[in-house]
């Protein structure tokens, strides 16, 4: 079976039938998995999920492979790009059908918390934290993810995530010291 990285992109983008068939065989497990995962909260039927996966392929080949032609192998791997495209297409497909649902016990507590509107929130000054520090804090606090997951996402080790988190907190405490944060 052909691997995704063995696909002749030029032939694929030119609409060669045999290359397209090989591409479908190589990409179907990934597209199927991404679509199923992306639509898990929408509670769609098996037929709807297959339609959504089919939509990904339609999107790729429509208008003379216009979307496929935007892919640049020098910038990202084909599998990652396909996964991003598949997720986006699947969610578009599902939104046309129905609203997502999420079991209450899967919702992070931070999102369920009732906000006390009488307490004025403290604004983090621009530049106090880096974008990466903010991202890590959001994953740890708002999404309630653990350091290992965030590390895998950011291609760094878990210890780096913990130390980035620690440094960010030190900066926040230092900044808001005396401001009763």
């Amino acid at each position: 079976m052909t691997e995704l990285n063995q696909i002749d992109l030029r032939a694929l983008q030119a609409g060669d039938k045999r290359t397209w068939d090989a591409f479908v065989g190589a990409s179907a497990p990934l597209i199927n998995a991404v679509v199923r995962r992306s639509l898990a909260s929408y509670r769609l039927s098996e037929e709807d999920v297959l339609d959504a996966a089919q939509d990904v392929y339609v999107r790729l080949c429509t208008n003379g492979f216009r979307l496929l032609k935007t892919y640049d192998a020098a910038r990202a791997s084909l599998s990652t790009w396909l996964a991003v495209v598949a997720r986006s297409a699947a969610i578009d497909h599902a939104r046309r059908r129905r609203q997502p649902t999420q079991p209450l016990d899967e919702v992070p507590e931070a999102r369920l918390a009732v906000e006390d509107r009488h307490v004025e929130k403290l604004k983090i000054p621009d530049g106090l934290l880096t974008n990466r520090q903010i991202l890590i804090l959001k994953y740890l606090y708002d999404e309630e993810r653990d350091a290992a997951e965030v590390a895998k996402l950011l291609n760094i080790d878990a210890q780096t995530v913990r130390s980035t988190h620690h440094k960010a907190l030190v900066r926040l405490r230092a900044h808001f010291q005396g401001k009763d944060p």
Binding site: K17, W20, P29, L30, I31, N32, L50, A53, Q54, C61
Partner: peptide
Amino acid sequence: LPAAPSRLEVRARTLV
């Protein structure tokens, strides 16, 4: 990743 349903592959191949 698990294999995709064969229906998906068959349908996708017919697109081109």
